[in-house]
């Protein structure tokens, strides 16, 4: 997999979510991603950026356009220095939440994208990478 472009954005407050979503959309449009896949990607990005703000108060996101063979995609990496996730398996279960939300965040997000990877260390932070192929 080759990275064609790389961009990064700091997420410090609630209002940063809207320009971030717009930036992700720009890249998705640039590679010619269809509307349904765009919507899935942006929704997934929105879920993760909200988690980041909620649990880690802030963080940064890397936005990459990647290519593999003849297929292009958008890869997003969410990096925070928050409390980390003690039990990733549990966090990935539908309906589980430590907050009063519905607990759809992580498992729901995974369903919306083609690749989903989560790495976390308690006390150090969390790195989540998602990838959506143009025709994925």
């Amino acid at each position: 997999m080759v990275t064609l472009t790389k961009d990064r954005m700091m997420i410090l407050k609630d209002q940063d979510v809207v320009p971030f979503r717009n930036r992700v959309k720009e890249y998705a449009v640039r590679i010619g991603m269809g509307l349904v896949n765009q919507t899935k990607l942006i929704t997934a990005a929105s879920e993760l950026v909200r988690n980041m703000l909620r649990y880690a108060q802030q963080g940064e996101v890397f936005i990459e356009v990647v290519t593999q063979g003849r297929e292009n995609g958008v890869r997003l990496t969410f990096v925070d220095k928050g409390p980390g996730i003690p039990d990733i398996e549990l966090a990935m279960k539908d309906g589980y939440s430590t907050h009063r939300s519905m607990g759809l965040g992580l498992p729901g997000t995974k369903r919306l994208v083609n690749e989903f990877e989560i790495r976390s260390k308690v006390g150090e932070g969390t790195v989540i990478t998602i990838l959506k192929w143009k025709n994925g």
Binding site: V36, T39, K40, L104, R111, L112
Partner: peptide, 13 residues
């Protein structure tokens, strides 16, 4: 929007 409806169902909402 149709794309929003598709996404909501896949998200589980």
């Amino acid at each position: 929007q149709p794309a929003v409806a598709i996404t909501l169902i896949e998200l589980g909402l």
